[in-house]
């Protein structure tokens, strides 16, 4: 009988945890969408795709911004690059001068998840540079989500413990009465 009671308590507890999680995630997702609604041209994000021709020269690349939207850019002769390697050495060049080095650098950025900033017009990239300071999105929705999930989970666990304790107290009181008889 006792195990039935605790089982129900556990199930109710688990249900609450799930509910709290879903709520927190839903709120955070809707918040991030609101905060990203006013997006303007320079795209900040992570390189997710690099395409080259047979000679190894860069032809196209794709960047995913913080909302997960994929932007694809084509290259023209005048595309300017300003990209750093892991040690922080900056490489500045144009597409005309070093077309295959650009592909190598972007692939390196993709491997390292290093963010870049791209200015473009009609899908053609004009400049591809290391993500610049001061151009960060706040991404407060994500911060909020972590915070909400953390406290929702702790709170749910404490509720679960409290319920477990109440069940035990009833049980002990009942047994005491039974043994006194």
């Amino acid at each position: 009988m006792m195990s039935n009671v605790t089982n129900t308590a556990i199930r109710v507890g688990a249900f609450r945890i799930a509910l709290a999680l879903i709520l927190a995630l839903a709120v955070s997702v809707s918040l991030t969408q609101i905060s990203s609604a006013e997006h303007t041209p320079p795209v900040n994000g992570i390189v997710v795709g690099v395409e080259t021709d047979d000679a190894g020269a860069l032809t196209r690349f794709a960047v995913s911004d913080s909302t997960g939207t994929i932007h694809t850019f084509t290259i023209f002769k005048g595309t300017e690059y300003g990209l750093e390697n892991q040690a922080g050495d900056r490489w500045v060049s144009t597409h005309e001068a070093e077309p295959s080095e650009a592909a190598r650098r972007l692939r390196d950025h993709r491997e390292r998840f290093a963010p870049i900033t791209v200015t473009s017009e009609n899908g053609t990239a004009f400049s591809v540079v290391e993500r610049e300071e001061g151009k960060l999105e706040a991404n407060l929705g994500y911060l909020f989500a972590v915070f909400a999930v953390t406290w929702a989970l702790f709170f749910a666990y404490v509720l679960y413990l409290g319920r477990k304790q109440r069940v035990l107290q009833h049980e002990i009181a009942r047994l005491k009465v039974a043994s006194d008889k």
Partner: peptide, 23 residues
């Protein structure tokens, strides 16, 4: 039990951080 709660939080917070930073 407490470790699993902390572990779950670690995974969730890591995932939420990774989405904007690693895409």
């Amino acid at each position: 039990e407490v470790g699993v709660i902390f572990g779950g939080l670690m995974l969730l917070s890591g995932m939420i951080w990774a989405r904007p930073v690693w895409a």
